[in-house]
Simulated assay, not measured.
Amino acid sequence: MIRHYVLFKLKPGVSWDDPKVQQAEQMAAKVGAEVPELREWTVGRNISTRPVAYDFVAVGLLDDMEAVERYMTNTFHQEAISAWREISDWVIADVEE
């Protein structure tokens, strides 16, 4: 099993009030239902105020790296990535469980 973590940091000047951010957040919430390879999918806003904290997280569980590759190329997932690309930067980690 692979635990897939994505941490998003909103770009300077971008806030949660921005309709583009709200759209990206809504799309992220739907990824779990739209990508069949995902066994689990959790998203949410970070509540920490520490300077090193990221703003939003998505965490998924997939069977193996082949499933991760299919997830990465899924059409809906690609649309969600496009929405986030405009408003944020992000980092990922794939951890074998």
Results as ranks from 00 to 15, higher is better:
H77I: 00
S15H: 12
Y71K: 06
K30A: 11
N74F: 06
A28H: 08
E34R: 15
D64W: 12
N46P: 11
K30E: 12
T49W: 05
T75D: 12
E40H: 08
H77P: 07
M72Y: 07
F56M: 01
D55K: 03
V57S: 14
E69I: 02
E37I: 03
Q26F: 04
D63P: 09
D18K: 09
E66G: 14
N46L: 03
W41L: 03
T75K: 09
K20N: 12
G44L: 02
I47C: 12
P36F: 06
E25Q: 07
M27P: 13
S82R: 11
Q23D: 13
L62W: 03
E34I: 02
A80K: 03
Q22K: 15
Q26G: 15
D17P: 11
Q78W: 00
Y54D: 15
A33R: 11
D63V: 11
V52M: 08
H77V: 00
G32L: 05
T42S: 07
E66Q: 13
V52Q: 09
G32D: 01
K20F: 02
E25N: 07
V14C: 04
E69S: 11
E34V: 04
E25Y: 04
Y54A: 11
V14P: 05
V31Q: 01
A67C: 12
A58C: 09
Q23P: 12
E34D: 08
Q78I: 00
W41D: 01
T73V: 05
F56D: 01
E34C: 09
Q22N: 09
R39Y: 06
V43T: 14
P51R: 10
R45H: 12
I47F: 11
K20I: 00
K30H: 10
G60D: 04
T73F: 10
K20D: 15
D18N: 14
K30D: 07
P51I: 03
G44N: 04
V35D: 00
V14N: 01
V21R: 10
E66D: 15
I47P: 03
E40F: 11
V43L: 04
R39P: 03
P36C: 07
Q22W: 05
A33G: 14
K20G: 08
F76K: 08
